[in-house]
């Protein structure tokens, strides 16, 4: 590149009138070996810019990124599924209550209706209806049993520290001790200890017991 060309470009550069392309051109000029001496003093600046532009991502960056993207959690979906799970739980309980309610409704309605056994046909029809209602009720009860078992299992899986919750409801530890002593006196303590141990061993059954006690 000619001297006056460099001169002109450099002037424009200091006045901030160069385009990005012209600045690239200027930079490459300053990297050349046949640069006129009077411009040598500006070499460090352009060498610095060249240097700062050179670092590149390591070659396996893209591969690692792809890998990470594949395993990237999509928080939006996760949030949604969590919300969905909660909704499902609520829906299940409504279904259960609704099921019992509807069965009760059918039964009571059928009981309230004055039934007159006029003919054989009608009797058998009424019997059939009653059987149907009972069947529904038993289905609903079965479902409710299943659902409550499922709920219990879920609660078990949550690994709730019952001891801790119990200790929260204890108002006065001293009182508790006293009552324990009383129990010991009456010989019931052993039994409760045994129960506790059993509960600790079979964590699965523990909440069931609790339910039973309640």
């Amino acid at each position: 590149m000619k001297r006056d060309q460099i001169e002109e470009l450099l002037d424009k550069y200091w006045r901030c009138e160069t385009t990005v392309a012209e600045e690239q051109l200027l930079r490459s000029c300053f990297m050349e070996t046949d640069l006129p001496d009077e411009y040598r003093c500006f070499v460090p600046l352009f060498a610095y810019l060249e240097e700062e532009q050179s670092p590149r991502l390591s070659r396996d960056f893209d591969r690692r990124l792809q890998e990470a993207l594949r395993h990237a959690p999509t928080p939006l979906l996760q949030k949604r599924s969590a919300r969905l799970a909660a909704l499902m739980r609520i829906a299940a309980s409504f279904l259960l209550i609704g099921g019992i309610g509807i069965s009760l409704f059918f039964i009571t309605r059928q009981n309230n209706h004055p039934q007159y056994a006029v003919g054989n046909e009608e009797t058998s029809e009424a019997m059939e209806q009653a059987a149907f209602a009972l069947e529904k009720l038993s289905d609903a009860l079965l479902m409710s049993e299943k659902a409550s078992l499922e709920t219990i299992r879920q609660i078990d899986e949550m690994k709730i520290d019952w001891e801790l919750i119990d200790s929260l409801s204890k108002e006065d530890p001293q009182q508790e001790e006293n009552s324990l002593k009383e129990m010991e006196d009456t010989g019931t303590r052993k039994k409760s200890e045994g129960q506790q141990q059993e509960g600790a061993e079979a964590g699965y059954r523990k909440p069931l017991k609790r339910e039973a006690r309640i």
Binding site: A68, L69, P73
Partner: peptide, 17 residues
Amino acid sequence: EDILQDLLLKLWSRREE
């Protein structure tokens, strides 16, 4: 590189927003 990857992952996982 780690910071860049973090940024890109964040952008990716929240692309709908």
